[in-house]
Every structure is written in C-alpha cells, then in structure tokens.
C-alpha cells in the first residue's frame, strides 16, 4: 500500500461508456477509493451495496466514493443499474489493473484488484489506507474513523 502522507497518484478511468473521471477533478473534496475484486458478488454481503447505503454519511464528511475494479465499463454499467448504485464505478480495464498497480493493490495471481481502501484528503494527500484480508468485506467503520479524524485537523 502507498504510505499515508504521500500524494495520491493521478489517474483517469472510464466512469461511463463515454466519459472519463480523473482524480484531480475531485480536488477540494475528500475521496474514498474502494478497490474491489469484481462486480457481481453475492447480494446482501456485497461491499458496494453496503457502501451505497452509507453514501449520505460519507457526504456529510465532504467525501466522494469511487469504486474501482478491473471489470469493463459495460459490466460496471449493468452491475450499477442492477444494484441501483448511486456512486461511480471506475473501469480499471485497459491496460488491465494499471491503477490498482499504481496504488499497490493488484493481485497478480487472480488478475484482479485486492480489496483495499484509501481515504484521500482535500489536497490529494493519502490520509488513511486499509488492505482487507481476502474474502472479507471491510465495512465502513474504518473509513468513517478516518473521515472524523480529518475533521479534527
């Protein structure tokens, strides 16, 4: 994982079939990067579905959530519609996993991203990170702790 206090590397990834989103576009806001292995994991325990319910709490802390996996933009579109997700999913598809590699969370064996979280502050500096054990949904408590800590700075 990249060190806390370092500048979050810039990237630009497809966010819809015809649009890109760059990290720098979100300067002035806090950003939560949620790297996850793949779309379409089982419903009730699904990390993205869980975060979808928590967006209002993230927004209270001026934080935008971005989901990132190596799935393609059409897969993300279908997944997002199916689960009624209200936050962007970025397609780290071509070259595959490039952003996951940039953030040191790519799993070479599976060819997918690991399940990992970064919280980035308004200035684009990494404030907190967490690598989840394989198969474990990390929940949102750590993210909220990190966001609360930023409020006290």
């Amino acid at each position: 994982m990249l060190a806390t206090g370092s500048i979050a590397p810039e990237f630009s990834l497809p966010v819809t079939p015809d649009q890109f989103l760059s990290l720098s576009e979100l300067k002035g806001k806090r950003v939560i990067l949620a790297f996850y292995p793949a779309d379409w994991s089982p419903v009730c325990g699904d990390q993205m579905a869980l975060y979808n319910e928590m967006l209002k709490f993230f927004k209270q802390h001026n934080a935008e959530l971005l989901g990132i996996s190596v799935d393609g933009k059409w897969c993300h579109t279908a997944f997002s519609q199916d689960r009624k997700l209200h936050f962007p999913l970025l397609a780290d598809f071509e070259p595959k996993g490039a952003v996951a590699k940039l953030y040191d969370v790519f799993d070479e064996a599976s060819g997918e991203s690991k399940r990992a979280l970064y919280v980035i502050d308004e200035e684009g500096v990494i404030a907190w990170s967490y690598l989840s054990p394989k198969g474990v949904n990390p929940g949102a408590d750590g993210i909220l702790d990190a966001l609360e800590q930023l409020n006290t700075k």
Partner: peptide, 13 residues
C-alpha cells in the same frame, strides 16, 4: 440502529 451497526463493523446482514 443502522448508524450504530455501521460503526460497530456490521458489513452484511
């Protein structure tokens, strides 16, 4: 209830 669960690490039902 939901918020308390979230802060206690509830990540699925």
């Amino acid at each position: 209830d939901f918020y308390g669960g979230m802060r206690s690490g509830v990540n699925a039902t």
